[in-house]
Write a protein that binds this DNA or RNA. Structure first.
Lengths: 338, 338
DNA sequence: GTGAAAGCGCTAACAT
DNA sequence: ATGTTAGCGCTTTCAC
């Protein structure tokens, strides 16, 4: 493996000059630089980024702490789309992405800080973590630059990227109201997700603004899981036959709710209208197609990486980014024919 | 940031001893080791893997060269499932995964070898590369250990993981034949994919063994893309109305074919039976549900990482792994009622 | 059982 | 414009 030392020897200069030439410093004579470049190419030289990282104390790598990278997580491409965005943005800025595996049981032996410091990543992006995760506390205490996805916490070294979940949920429910629904149920995620808290808020606001009844019995949690949401919808519709619409805080859960409606011998949207959240691929394929609030997951990832890189390279003022969502109207909320 | 030097100073020993103690070498007295461990904990020490990599010439990281990590690739979770498997396996073996971004335009400026050597990855896993990709040639010439997914090439430093695509395709077509079909079309991927070549072979074998007619006009390529497959199916069914079934070399293409059947005013499976390949999530959600050949993508990834790690740590004999596939019968190939 | 010293490949003062 | 030197944090002979 060729090193700059080899180049120096062959080119008849010192390693310093080689380093300077290769890194494009100005204080190298034109002919020397050319000679060095030629030799480097001739010897098929590749710089050793490890050695460089050691001395520079920067690795040009970003650590990724994502949940759902296990066998079970395969069902939604939510994480993957974010990953794609992250990947593209870091590629553009010439950063490498390293996946920290939080899946393994061993993993929890190490603290967040240990994890990051060992790998010498310049910064970290975290997605899919619950709000009561002990790591979160550490993130705030640590001095490692970090961007959180969908957890709006800001500090000196921590920023975040998310969508306006209150508004998204509100728009979803307003759409249902517009379709003539007055008794609207909610199947939410769980209390340890910030998005759930906010989507609940949006739901409440939409109802209140329209002077509609709001019963706690109409709200259940489905943990973002399809089958749990199915069970929740079953209960909801059995216990509260007055419900004519359900807002689900994720498309996967909406799918579960649709199944529940079917099992009760009812139809979507004629008997019960369903609207989801996310706009996953499945939403436009299921029958009836699912109305939903589209989140641009790719962009979520892209912006997260951009933000982090900006934090690393410039002293950034704003460390938060809110991304738009969009109402997608499909068949599952078609107005009931009176 | 604490270093072993700090520990050495506080514990009153040399850095050598600290290194030995921390790495669990036997030739350190019990009390010295304990003292060092205590000091390390007290100083909140994390080892610097960069420094270690530099001297050890091993990084305990695996490079990932995956295609489809861009905005367009988001549609199928195929890559993601593989990623999950890779992630789990490397986590288990305490390797880190670093994503090489082949998406960026800059990327192609660097050769494969440069890419890998710069990052000092111990090995590489490649997925989604076409058989005429220039990188592939380099992989074989390079001495960097590498595992290919779905490209059966083996060398001293190169292994692969794949499924038996001939057999998978054959089983799919045999299933159609069993359902009474005699005129069976094929929508394949493209000629630069090894899996396509093999699935074609399986198709041919199945027909020949049953003395069924085989017309080149019945075969088209859909480039693994849904809309191209839809167009291909449209042509196929228009030009060859005798076809009563189509085998598609991917589920996404099968979805396109199903749309085409619909557009022609025909029904699946009554008029045209469709069988796909992969068993993506959508397959069990579309209507009618899609029969297919299931590939365990997670396992594909898991085994690829395991294989590579084995190649890195032991001198491995076998560098190939073939994973089973499975016929999944759903509605899209239900026997036509006579 | 422990330490001194060398060196992994690179960058960065500080000379000259 | 170029070279000398030191050092990043760690592992590893080789001595004692």
């Amino acid at each position: 493996m060729t090193t700059i030392k080899d180049i120096a020897r062959v080119a008849g200069v010192s390693v310093t000059t080689v380093s300077r030439a290769l890194n494009g410093y100005s204080d190298v004579s034109k002919q020397t630089r050319q000679r060095i470049l030629d030799v480097a190419k001739e010897l098929n030289y590749s710089p050793n980024t490890v050695a460089r990282s050691l001395v520079m104390k920067k690795s040009k790598t970003i650590g990724l702490l994502v949940s759902n990278m296990n066998r079970e997580g395969v069902k939604d491409n939510f994480t993957f789309e974010i990953l794609c965005g992250l990947n593209q943005a870091s590629a553009d800025a010439e950063y490498d992405l390293v996946l920290f595996s939080t899946t393994s049981s061993k993993q929890r032996e190490k603290t967040y800080t240990q994890l990051c410091r060992e790998r010498r990543v310049d910064g970290v992006i975290i997605q899919g973590i619950k709000t009561d995760d002990p790591y979160l506390e550490e993130v705030l205490q640590s001095d490692i630059p970090c961007v959180l996805i969908d957890i709006p916490i800001e500090s000196n070294t921590v920023g975040y990227v998310t969508t306006d979940n209150v508004r998204g949920a509100k728009i979803a429910v307003l759409h249902l109201i517009e379709q003539g629904h007055k008794n609207i149920g909610l199947i939410n995620g769980h209390s340890k997700a910030d998005v759930s808290t906010r989507r609940l808020q949006g739901y409440v606001e939409a109802l209140e603004e329209n002077n509609l009844r709001l019963k706690t019995g109409w709200i259940k949690n489905g943990q973002f899981a399809e089958h749990l949401a199915e069970a929740a919808a079953l209960e909801l519709l059995t216990e509260h036959p007055e419900l004519t619409a359900i807002f689900c805080a994720s498309d996967l859960m909406a799918l579960g709710a649709m199944k529940a409606v079917g099992k009760l011998g009812k139809r979507v949207p004629e008997d019960v209208a369903i609207i989801g959240y996310d706009d996953i691929l499945l939403a436009s394929y299921v029958s009836p197609t699912l109305s939903t609030i589209r989140q641009d997951k790719y962009r979520l990832g892209y912006e997260a990486a951009m933000l982090l890189i900006n934090m690393l390279e410039n002293q950034l003022e704003s460390k938060a980014k809110i991304i738009d969502t969009e109402l997608i109207i499909r068949e599952s909320t078609k107005k009931a024919t009176k």
